[in-house]
Design a binder for these strands. Structure first.
Lengths: 183, 183
DNA sequence: CGCACCATGTAATGCGTTACATGATTTT
DNA sequence: AAAATCATGTAACGCATTACATGGTGCG
C-alpha cells in the first residue's frame, strides 16, 4: 500500500526517500504515514518490481543521495490502483473504544480522566485542521495556481480530518455527560 | 493489545478461544477484531506469561475444547491497562483518503464512482448502528439487568459508530457535491 | 449431498516499528 | 556546546493475515 503512496508523489517528480518522507509529513501524514526505514526498504522493493529506478547524485558538503524516478510501469500500476474501487468498509482498531467497552471493570474516575484527556487532544487536533492545515492549503493554491485541481482533493482530505475530530469531541462530550449522570 | 481484549472477556467467565472469537464478533468487532488463528496463538502466549491457565474439557459428539481461565496476575494486568491513560492521538490509515489525495491523477468519473460506492457502504453501516446494534444492546439490558453498568459503556461504543458513520456520509455528500461543481 | 458449525492448531508471509550504525553541517 | 537537519541503510522483532491441516455433527 505504501508503494502507491510513494508512486503518487514520485509521479509529480523524482525524489529521494528522505524527501518522500518530508512530503508525506506535510500532507498525507494524517491518514498515511511511514517511517524512513520502511520507505527505504519499500523503494528498494519497488525498484525490483520495475516501478521506479534510482541513481546516485553526488553532493558537495552533503551526503550523496539516491534519487528515485517513476517508470512507465510504475505509472500504470498507480493508474490501475487509483481506478480500483473500494468495495468494503475499512475497519479501524480503536484503543479508546476497547478500554471503554471494558470500563465497567474499573472505576468511574479513571474512565472520566481517560475521556477528558482524549477530549483535550481531539480539540487541539480539530483546531489544527481548522487553522494551520487550512492555511497551508490556501497558501499552496496562491503560490502554485497550476495545482488548482489537486488542491480540491487535498482540501477534501483536510475537511475529513476536521469533521472527524469535531465528531470525536462531540461524542466525548456526550459520553462524559452520560457517565456523569448514570454512574 | 489483543491480550487485554481477551482478558476483558475472560474476566466475566472462563471461555475457549472459539467462544472468545464469537463474543468479539458480537461486540467489539467494530473497533477490535482478530482472526481465530491469532486468538489461539495469543492465548498460548498469555498462558506462558501466567495471565491465564487452561484445561481440556472432553465432550461427547463434539471436539474436545481448551477452556481458558483468567488468573490473579491476569486480573491485575487488566486493571493496570484499564487505568493507563491514552496520552496520544491514535492514527488511522485510510485508503479512501489516500486515493482521494492523488485523485487529480485520474479521471473525474472514476473518483465519483469511488465516492458513491463508499457512501452506499457507510449508509448501510450507519443504519446497522441505528437499528440492529441498538436493539441488541436493548435486549441485553432487558434479559440481564445485572449488566446495567456495562450496557452504559457498550452503548457509548455503539454511539461512536453511529456518529462516525453519519459524519462519513455527510463528508462524502459534501465532497461529491464539491467535485461535481469544481471538476 | 453439500454447507455451515464446532473446534484446534501450525507455518509462511507481509507489513510496520524499533534499534543499530555512521557522520557532516547548520542552527540555537 | 548541544541539538536539529541532511542522508542512507540493515537487523531484529512484533503483530496480523492467509494458507494449510483435520474431522465430526446438524440442517436444509
Amino acid at each position: 500500500m505504501l508503494d502507491y503512496a510513494l508512486l503518487g508523489f514520485l509521479n509529480y517528480g523524482s525524489m529521494t526517500g528522505y524527501e518522500l518522507k518530508q512530503n508525506m509529513e506535510g500532507s498525507t501524514s494524517h491518514f498515511w504515514t511511514a517511517k524512513l526505514s520502511q520507505i527505504y526498504t519499500t523503494l528498494k522493493a519497488m525498484e525490483k518490481k520495475g516501478w521506479v529506478r534510482s541513481s546516485i547524485q553526488a553532493q558537495k558538503e552533503r551526503p550523496d543521495k539516491r534519487v528515485y524516478t517513476i517508470t512507465a510501469e510504475g505509472r500504470s500500476s498507480l493508474q490501475k490502483w487509483l481506478a480500483e474501487p473500494l468495495t468494503e468498509l475499512a475497519h479501524h482498531k480503536n484503543t479508546l473504544l476497547l478500554k471503554l467497552f471494558f470500563a465497567a471493570q474499573t472505576d468511574r474516575e479513571t474512565t472520566l480522566a481517560l475521556l477528558h484527556l482524549q477530549k483535550n487532544l481531539h480539540q487541539r487536533q480539530a483546531d489544527f485542521y481548522r487553522t494551520k492545515s487550512r492555511d497551508l492549503i490556501q497558501s499552496i493554491v496562491q503560490r502554485s495556481p497550476a495545482l488548482e485541481k489537486e488542491v480540491i482533493f487535498w482540501e477534501a482530505t483536510r475537511r475529513f480530518g476536521e469533521l472527524y475530530e469535531e465528531m470525536y469531541v462531540n461524542w466525548l462530550d456526550e459520553t462524559i455527560k452520560s457517565l456523569e449522570e448514570k454512574l
